[in-house]
Nucleic acid binder design. Structure first.
Length: 103
DNA sequence: ATCATGACGTACG
DNA sequence: TCGTACGCCATGA
């Protein structure tokens, strides 16, 4: 059982057509930094159905290097209806989904 | 144990 | 708005 299970659960709760940022997820989990979220997804089990492509950075851009899957991520997001601005950024005002603290 | 690295964020110029 | 510097901390050599 990975210590990142809570991170995975949170990422799984992101609805289709929406995105979330590393920072927002980390903010939900005290003691977890944005880098940890990125690392958790990087090392995350691919067997699990984790919508990793819905996680982007605070600037609204893809953090993955294009050659390492960034292209695929952009394609997956577009496939879900997320549109990119001319400068390659996602309109966070419109697509950012904020996770509920708990409840 | 130490060093470098990284799917980030904030501060500064 | 963009690039650089630094803090953050798990991971691997």
């Amino acid at each position: 059982m990975s210590r990142y299970q809570t991170i995975y659960s949170l990422v799984k709760s992101i609805p289709p057509g929406r995105v979330c940022t590393y920072g927002a997820i980390a903010a939900m989990l005290p003691g977890v930094t944005a880098r940890m979220v990125g690392y958790a997804l990087h090392a995350g089990p691919r067997e699990e159905e984790i919508p990793w492509w819905r996680v982007i950075n605070g600037r609204g851009t893809i953090s993955l290097p294009p050659h390492a899957g960034g292209e695929a991520q952009a394609a997956l997001l577009k496939n879900e209806g997320v549109t990119f601005a001319a400068n390659g950024r996602i309109d966070l005002e419109r697509y950012l989904w904020q996770p509920a603290a708990n409840h």
